[in-house]
Design a protein around this nucleic acid. Structure first.
Lengths: 370, 370
DNA sequence: CTGTTAGCGCATTCAG
DNA sequence: CTGAATGCGCTAACAG
């Protein structure tokens, strides 16, 4: 048996047709069509020989790959892996393969990766995770000349060359974005918590430079204050957007409070909240007896922390799917969604932007205040 | 300014050299060498024009991609995302891009994906997650003719065509594998637990067809029995390898026990254990007061479940890295590792196989028995 | 409808 | 050491 890769031309020869016809029969060119009879012959030959197209060759010939790039800060973080799961599902449904980059705090890798999918003419790229507070990813001195510019420029260039782009969590310029209603969610949570009888609140506010973090902080604090509750400046402490960041921030808050803790501490995301709870436990105190705790995101792993954490539920996997469709330009059935009450919190604000609203989940970590 | 992609030939023209020379200067062909002077000219021109190679074209020309395929069952599962994190890191260190497939219980997608990376001439593929108990992935009726065969065949074909392969968790044929010492880890755990004073044990044994699950079950049960402890057959209940599977299995165990629970329940992996703890809680009982619980893997998210779960620690991220190197044929410095006491539990059993030993972590979910 | 002919961008023969 | 010529496998004009 003649070995080596089975090429299209071999299939064509076998079927007794031209290369072009074989190509058309197999992928069904949009403009051209093939007589059913020939088409059958070609398909049969392909099947018999076990023909499979070479993706690189196709990519080169049509100047376009079937790859979708996904950038996350840390794939091991439940927040991102939940999103990745949604992206993966949606991408596979579109016949795309997802290439992943877990950038772990290295912005230059983010840029390098986006540039890579641009070079390889990927179909789309999705950036998950917030950007810095200056919603101008193009600010600051130019990055490495090697990668040739800053993120926003690269993204725009990619988009102009026909690639799809979507970001999750925060807009970059005017690029399509699945935005989370951070301020609104935090405010709603604040209102509920205040309604439960809590009066003095602390906030683990995350990295000051992170827009997501500052929006949640502001939304929560402002609502509490407008309701007559108390948020002392000393009870607002920054920290990394991670589990350990939450742990450390809680320790610092407690140290600064000298035994006089707030009634409730709101951590701007769940992983921080979970870290904060650990800090409380390790300090020999109890949640919620000594201090109540609330978070934001409702990451999947939350169901196994105890006490169960009050949070703002965000449909993470749905967001991943939505971002994928947005990047690909696939009309999402959001009209219906908002019509029937936007049951999953997604709402199309425009064709290039979706806003996701959270849903308050009151749980055991914040019982009605005594 | 002339637009369009900057191609190598344009760089060559700009530098006043031939296409071939430019190619050699830029990627430094192994056999040919270029006069430093010309080389400089070429590099300068490339830099000036912002030249970047087209991956598809390179792939086609040299018949080889810089992609590494990673197959996991569910990227949202902390076990897999931790492994993915390690793979991602190691791959990026090698200049490879990782393409991810989250197969979610669809074996045919697994096959399809492996076949895809084979077709696109990827450098390597890594399969994470156990296979069925019959360690013969080639058994059973042939799968879809479309994908052309079964997994082992496809993998072998890929390997013979120069691709690297590594599996994690269970060997497929004689393919390279990062194996986990499931039986040994479970046995060691059993010994410790028995030493703590527990006498009657239950096991949430996972899916019977999963080798990983059955090895852990057998290792644990046999050790307990040889120590004189008790494992009633009724107290061994199967279930899905997931959090919900653990929950359900625990419910069934409790139902079957009619209030007469074992002293301790060993779930064959952490996500099941965590589900089991939830079941215990929801039944109004307490861990460890009413029943102690232990797991296996030490997934990262474990640090935030309470009480802290006793488990067998497996260095998940390291495994991802090790598998990557194994698949790529990069000699791992395991000789040293075993020399200095194999501090991370990795041990090279042969050049094509690594065995990972767990480390017992006794925590609050299994206090010394009363 | 179908076949012929050019490339896509690059790595590599093979000559010089 | 360098340049000119080939071809990777496939699609997309372009003719028939």
């Amino acid at each position: 048996m003649p070995d080596g890769p089975v090429t299209l031309s071999r299939v064509a020869r076998e079927a007794g047709v031209s290369l072009a016809t074989a190509s058309r029969a197999i992928n069904g060119s949009a403009t051209r069509t093939v007589r059913p009879e020939l088409r059958e012959r070609v398909l049969a030959a392909a099947e018999a020989l076990g023909y499979v197209p070479d993706p690189s060759a196709q990519a080169m010939a049509r100047g376009r790959t079937a790859a979708l790039g996904l950038v996350v800060h840390d794939i091991a973080d439940p927040y991102f892996s939940a999103i990745a799961s949604g992206v993966s599902r949606a991408a596979e449904a579109e016949g795309l393969i997802v290439t992943l980059s877990s950038t772990e705090q290295h912005p230059e890798r983010e840029l390098g990766f986006v540039d890579l999918v641009r070079r390889q003419r990927g179909r789309a790229v999705i950036l998950a995770g917030s950007r810095v507070v200056s919603d101008d990813a193009g600010a600051g001195p130019a990055t490495s000349a090697l990668t040739g510019g800053n993120l926003q420029e690269t993204l725009t260039a990619f988009q102009e060359s026909g690639g799809g782009v979507a970001t999750i969590g925060q807009a970059i310029g005017t690029l399509p974005v699945v935005e989370i209603d951070n301020a609104g969610g935090a405010a709603a949570l604040a209102r509920e918590l205040h309604g439960l009888g809590y009066r003095r609140f602390g906030i683990l506010s995350g990295p000051p430079a992170l827009r997501t973090a500052s929006d949640r902080t502001a939304g929560f604090r402002d609502m509490i204050r407008s309701l007559g509750g108390e948020v002392r400046d000393d009870d607002v402490v920054a920290g990394e957007f991670t589990r350990d960041g939450g742990y450390a921030a809680m320790e610092r808050l407690a140290a600064g409070a000298h035994g006089d803790l707030p009634d409730l501490v709101f951590a701007v995301n769940d992983v921080m909240a979970v870290g904060a709870m650990a800090a409380v436990r390790h300090a020999g105190m109890s949640v919620p007896d000594d201090v109540a705790v609330a978070g934001f995101d409702d990451i999947p792993t939350l169901r196994d922390v105890t006490p169960e954490l009050t949070t703002v539920h965000i449909a993470l996997e749905r967001i991943g799917e939505a971002a994928t469709r947005l990047a690909l330009g696939i009309p999402t059935s959001l009209d219906r969604a908002s019509g029937d009450g936007a049951s999953d919190g997604l709402e199309a604000t425009s064709s290039r932007s979706i806003t996701v609203h959270g849903e308050i989940r009151l749980r055991a970590s914040t019982p009605p205040a005594p």
